[in-house]
Structure formats: structure tokens, C-alpha cells
């Protein structure tokens, strides 16, 4: 029983972090109507940023997150100014094509700079666990889950209660009607893209906290983000977090009976089942985009 409890709790902690990895994708899809295929690559880039800053200055996690957020904000600004600004009135396919190119460039530049080797960020103060009754909770898991919850919470409050957040939701429902009310929707799209990128950066910090990583790992994080989106839908960022949680727990429980090397297959089975069940729903939602 204690084993199951420990498994569930660590599944929850990991699941919250999974939810965070899907957050940027959900957000750009649901609100910006673009599927950012560069998401996995950006997550890994965020992890490398965190690793580099940590190795250089031994910053604490909060400062790392803020620093990575700032850098990703700058990156989003640059991409927006150089590319995306010119794609607003082009078709969705062209935007995707360009983002695909950007993803490949970032992935290969990353592997050029940091090599293709597996690397890990080891923060000495976070290497032990917190004992809580019979539970032993690794500090890294707790910190990354906390980052996921705080990031989602802040984003949720921002969308729900700020004027800008309301304008983002309104533009997502109808770009034209929002423009009619005076909203500069092309600036709104730039902001949505920026938030999506910053979320990828934050997710990257949690990846660095929890796992060893390499540039070519971008694929597994893109797959994870995609599974989270399919399970959680694209309308609500809280259900994205919940979807991550469900996936985390399911994976953890499956880990009790399935050998380690087959655990990815559980995830894909999850994806296939979710797609089967959600196909109609997603199709309907897509139509309204």
C-alpha cells in the first residue's frame, strides 16, 4: 500500500510538470491558433539555458526561472520582429512551415553549442528528499511541481482578471469582433506567442531539474506536450494541468507492473486512446478555429 501511495504522489508531482510542458502548446493553439512545432526544441533550449547559468553562477531556482523567462521573452520578440510579424496575413500552413524551419535551426544550433551528449543539472541543495510520514519526496520533484502550479496559476489569473487577459480570450473567440472593439489583434497574437515561448522556457527549467537531457530529446518533450494537449484539450489551461497530472499518475502506476523500458509505450497507448475518444470533440473545436 505504501508503495502505491508513494507512486501516486510522485506521479502527481511529475504529472504537474508534464502539464507545464504542454502549457505553451495549449496556449498558442487555443488562443493563438498556431501549433508551435518548435515547442520541444524550445523546452530543451530552456533546459540548456538553465544548466549554463547554474554552472556559471550557481543561482537559485527562482532566479534561474526568471532569467530563462526573460531570455525567452527576448527570443520571442526577435522571432516576432524578424519572422512572425510578416506571417500574420499569410496562411496557417506557411506559419507552420516557418516554425518547422525555426525548430530545426534551434535544435541543431543547440546541439552544436552544447554537443549531443546527455547532460544534467545538479543543484546540491535540492539533491535530498523531504520525509513526510512514510513518503519520501525528492526536493527537485517538489520544486518543479511548485513551478508548474505557480506558472499555471499566474497565467490563469492573468487571463481571467486582467484587461489584457480578457482581450486575449475575446480575440481567441473572434479576431474580427475584437478588432471592431478596438483591440489591436496583431499585437495580441505577438503577446500570445511570447507567453507560449516563455512557458516553454519555464518547462525547460523543470526538465533540467528532473532529468538528464540532450538536444535530441526535444522529440520526447514535444510528444509529451502533444499528449497533454490531446488529453486536456485546448480551451482551458487548468484542464491542461489536470491532464498532465492524470498522465503522470497513470504512467507512475503503470510503472509498477510494466518494465521500465516499455514505459514510453504506455504513454503512446494513452495518446492513441485519448485521440480516439477526443477526435470528435477536437474536430468540432478545430472547425470553430
Amino acid at each position: 500500500m505504501a508503495v502505491v501511495l508513494t507512486t501516486v504522489v510522485s506521479g502527481i508531482l511529475l504529472g504537474l510538470m508534464y502539464g507545464l510542458t504542454g502549457m505553451g502548446l495549449t496556449f498558442t493553439m487555443g488562443f493563438g491558433k498556431t501549433m508551435n512545432v518548435a515547442q520541444g526544441t524550445l523546452i530543451i533550449l530552456g533546459a540548456f539555458f538553465a544548466l549554463t547559468f547554474f554552472n556559471a553562477w550557481h543561482l537559485n531556482v527562482i532566479v534561474l526561472v526568471i532569467l530563462v523567462m526573460v531570455l525567452f521573452g527576448v527570443l520571442a520578440g526577435l522571432l516576432n520582429l524578424s519572422l512572425l510579424r510578416f506571417l500574420r496575413d499569410k496562411s496557417e500552413i506557411i506559419t507552420l512551415l516557418v516554425l518547422f524551419g525555426v525548430a530545426e535551426v534551434i535544435e541543431n544550433v543547440t546541439s552544436w553549442i552544447w554537443t549531443g551528449n546527455l547532460q544534467a543539472m545538479t543543484i546540491p541543495t535540492l539533491q535530498n528528499s523531504i520525509q513526510w510520514g512514510s513518503l519520501s519526496l525528492p526536493k527537485t520533484d517538489l520544486v518543479s511541481a511548485a513551478i508548474a502550479v505557480v506558472a499555471t496559476g499566474v497565467l490563469y489569473l492573468f487571463l481571467q482578471y486582467t484587461y489584457l487577459g480578457k482581450a486575449i480570450r475575446a480575440s481567441a473567440q473572434s479576431d474580427l469582433y475584437a478588432r471592431i472593439l478596438g483591440v489591436n489583434t496583431s499585437q495580441i497574437r505577438a503577446i500570445i506567442f511570447l507567453i507560449g515561448l516563455v512557458l516553454a522556457g519555464i518547462a525547460g527549467v523543470t526538465v533540467a531539474l528532473l532529468f538528464p537531457f540532450a538536444p535530441q530529446d526535444q522529440d520526447q518533450w514535444l510528444v509529451m506536450a502533444f499528449i497533454v494537449v490531446v488529453v486536456g484539450g485546448i480551451d482551458n489551461i487548468l484542464s491542461t494541468l489536470l491532464a498532465g497530472l492524470v498522465i503522470g499518475v497513470a504512467q507512475a502506476l503503470a510503472g509498477l507492473v510494466v518494465p521500465f523500458q516499455d514505459q514510453n509505450l504506455i504513454l503512446y497507448a494513452f495518446l492513441a486512446i485519448a485521440l480516439l475518444f477526443r477526435n470528435n470533440q477536437l474536430a468540432r473545436r478545430m472547425r470553430s478555429l
Binding site: 498556431t34 512545432v37 485521440l275 478555429l289
Partner: peptide, 25 residues
């Protein structure tokens, strides 16, 4: 059958992800 009912962007990312899923399998 799983993805073609979904419009553009979703289809694109589904097919993109399929490569990695198949690689892992």
C-alpha cells in the same frame, strides 16, 4: 483516420509527433 478530420495545424503536429512515437516504439 486519427488525424485527417482535424484541421491544418493539428494534423501537422500529429504527423510530426508520429515520427517520434514510431521511433520510440
Amino acid at each position: 483516420l486519427l488525424s485527417l478530420r482535424l484541421r491544418g495545424a493539428f494534423f501537422a503536429i500529429f504527423t510530426f509527433v508520429s515520427v517520434f512515437v514510431l521511433e520510440a516504439i
